[in-house]
Design a protein around this nucleic acid. Structure first.
Lengths: 118, 118
DNA sequence: CATCGCTATGCTTGAAAATGAATAACGAAA
DNA sequence: TTTCGTTATTCATTTTCAAGCATAGCGATG
């Protein structure tokens, strides 16, 4: 049977993040940034690859490190290549934790979207 | 046993909303507005009670009605009291649908917050 | 000790969004 | 036909926020 193309379709969307009592901690964008830093070994390269300003990327990392139990990114200045940034093991664990959470959330959204009857 | 007060605490937060292929449809703020309109019978009164500009409130209702299968709010101009707005039965159903969804989402957040080990 | 690219930071611009003021239109009821 | 408070709409203004520029500091390596 054909489905009418004039009908509006609906779906459920959302965002999820981790807050701390010090303020916003980790969301989708920050995790994406962490992964890019892991990939490139530098904040500036990561920012460029995401079409984000270096300034903003740096601030995000600063904010993350301030709220994390231990630093998630270690930054080095000067030296060979001018320095760089690398994701710590605590950072890796955080990425994994967030991605598991996000996956569960996606499944929740999908389930609720299917249940949705307007 | 005492718990250290210097430790940072974390919790999961999020937002959830209903989108349509015509664009954003219903979120927390719009539902809140619908409920205020139901309470006051007028967009302007509802807006005032939420400290929202009438202009924005009117635009939100316009956007909602355009995307809904049937109008959720009926607006009348002129007449006794100058007119007003009322929430249709379809609107009532939409409020109920969203609130059930939001409740389930809150439970999801709570569950995941408890599971959270950083 | 000169080079290099990155971190670190302040300052200036600019664009986008929300606000508020102002006003027309409306129509039931007195 | 006058009144009233609301809907409906435009416009200039303000506020908010991000982007971009500009530049100093750093230190391993050659």
């Amino acid at each position: 049977m054909a489905i009418s193309t004039t009908e509006t379709h609906y779906f459920i969307q959302g965002r999820i993040w981790i807050d701390s009592d010090k303020g916003p901690f980790l969301g989708f964008g920050r995790i994406q940034l962490l992964k890019k830093i892991r990939e490139y070994g530098s904040i500036s390269q990561a920012a460029k690859s995401m079409e984000m300003s270096y300034r903003q990327a740096w601030q995000l990392i600063e904010s993350i490190n301030l709220k994390a139990p231990q630093p998630l990114v270690i930054k080095t200045t000067g030296g060979k290549g001018g320095g760089g940034a690398l994701v710590t093991e605590a950072g890796e664990n955080m990425i994994a934790t967030y991605e598991a959470l996000d996956q569960a959330f996606l499944e929740f959204l999908e389930m609720k979207s299917k249940e949705l009857k307007l």
